[in-house]
Design a binder for these strands. Sequence first.
DNA 1: GAATCTTCCTGGGCGC
DNA 2: TGCGCCCAGGAAGATT
Length: 289
Amino acid sequence: MPELPEVEVVRRGLEDHVVGRRITGVEFFGSRVVRRHLPGAPDLAARLVGRRVDAARRRGKYLWLVLSGDDGPGSALLMHLGMSGQLLVEAPDAPDEKHLHARFGFDDDGPELRFVDQRTFGGMAFSELTPGGIPETVSHIAPDPLEEDWDEELVVARMKARDSAVKRALLDQSLVSGIGNIYADEALWRASVHGERLASSLTRPALRRILGHARAVMVEALGEGGTSFDALYVNVNGASGYFDRSLNAYGQEGRPCRRCGTPIRREAFMNRSSYSCPRCQPRPRVRRD
DNA sequence: GAATCTTCCTGGGCGC
DNA sequence: TGCGCCCAGGAAGATT
């Protein structure tokens, strides 16, 4: 599924193939893809037609296309890929995908942009931008570790004040964005910390280490993800090479830990799964869910 | 106000 | 073969 590195690959693809082009046609298939745009699909389409795409930006797993023609901070088409969303740049005569939800045509009659989503957790909406250039509807989302103005010390301080499990804090997008279940497990494995440890019980250096590992693993994934996509195909492919070769914990149940050889365990956590090494990442004495 | 839980959704994989 | 169930995931909104 698309995680932050994959979303960044998509953003770069949009920068290459969509920015600078003027939208001339918009089609939505079904209403679910625009469920966060309360005025509905016709309203969203009307807001987009005739607008040029000036930039493609990202925070965490949110993507947005900055639209031309506004005074002030501007406006954008905000998108989230959810679990299975794909943004594809394709020839207009290419066959429709089974789970096609939206199609955008441009004034140069070149490749169109399509939003395809099997599990329909993804979606899009129109949003005004704040003076800082962030869509208003996601202004509560904290910066992600790959942003230039990422303030690690601020995040460490806020985590230190958290009376909840450190993995829960890592997944809280208002604290730090872009870290999903996979990268949370990988960062905690690298730091040799169990995800149910209370964030407030960890030392500041330990929290720094965890955040540093989260950033590092995403940078490494971005490096690999960036090479596995065709230039004309803005793709999202969670099953690409990186996941097969480089994961140390996530999805590795029963396989030997690459550090100590102990079989990786899987545990239920927050209605999903957590993977960790029983020896390197001992569970805290008092379990917190 | 903070922390936690529920809900949304589809299709692959599995057991029977 | 076909049916039913479980699981995966992010984030908004509801609940504690």
